[in-house]
Design a protein around this nucleic acid. Structure first.
Lengths: 141, 141
DNA sequence: ATAAACCTGACTAAAATAGTCAAGTATCAT
DNA sequence: ATGATACTTGACTATTTTAGTCAGGTTTAT
């Protein structure tokens, strides 16, 4: 099990954005430089974040992105959902009455993955962007 | 983020084993048939489980595998560790004092992944093989 | 007008995954 | 003893996912 860079970058970029977007829109170029993430890749990520109403874009010179909601209202769940960073556990065909892998019974671990899903998503639902920004600024000297 | 088949299969196979190994060693062939997992793949998985002292092998005719500890004492953590199903979150170079991606400061989300690690591992440490076997037999008719 | 910055889609190298395949070795039942 | 069963090991491979790159736009402040 692993977290991919896409999810990690999305969070890093949004924390960056949350810090600076009250002054003026933040350009991806700036985020790219500060966070060390490829500009082209950031564009892909922000395209998804925008489609999911997490950020708003401001076009033209001096343009960039701003958060679409308050940092407090953006949970990690929302971010991960937006960039398709999902907790995939059970690959069983849920549609089929026969259950997992065409077997007659549910695979013995079916419920386990459901529980795990809940457990992880619970964590993601607790944490907001604001929490992360605070965590980070506290540790600054 | 996802759970791979290897971890899923390992758990499925061990639950199967826990059910039947008090009668006699369980052959991989039987597990393969009951759980619908390729025999060759099971062999890879059990090789790792054996090296990590989770199961014992019994060679020869009527041979197979038995659990090396009581089902209660085998936690999911142990199983996932054995088959290299790890929760990978931070890919930052921990050795370097410079921290994540060669930046001067820790990447803003560094602590987040640490927390997530703990949260998930906490779940895995709670659940034992016995829990899974019980869960499953209760739901049988 | 022109440069900054967003926007889109197609493409690709590298890594991970989910196996397969081949060639053993050990041991029990007869 | 000998054959069948079942464990053991290591190499190989097709597919998928990841983590980007690349090329071409469009919008708008100045």
């Amino acid at each position: 099990m692993k977290l991919t860079s896409k999810g990690r970058y999305a969070v890093m970029a949004l924390v960056d954005l949350a810090r600076f977007d009250n002054i003026s829109p933040v350009s991806l170029r700036d985020i790219s430089l500060r966070q060390g993430i490829s500009l082209d890749y950031l564009e892909q990520i922000f395209s998804k974040l925008r489609k999911n109403q997490i950020v708003q874009s401001v076009r033209g010179t001096q343009g960039g992105y701003v958060l679409n909601k308050k940092a407090k209202e953006i949970k990690l769940t929302n971010i991960f959902d937006a960039v398709d960073e999902k907790v995939k556990t059970v690959q069983c065909k849920k549609e089929s009455k026969k259950g997992c892998n065409g077997k007659l019974t549910k695979c013995v671990t079916h419920n386990l993955w459901d529980d795990l899903d809940k457990h992880i998503n619970n964590f993601f639902e607790q944490k907001s962007l604001e929490d992360l920004v605070k965590d980070n600024s506290e540790k600054r000297i």
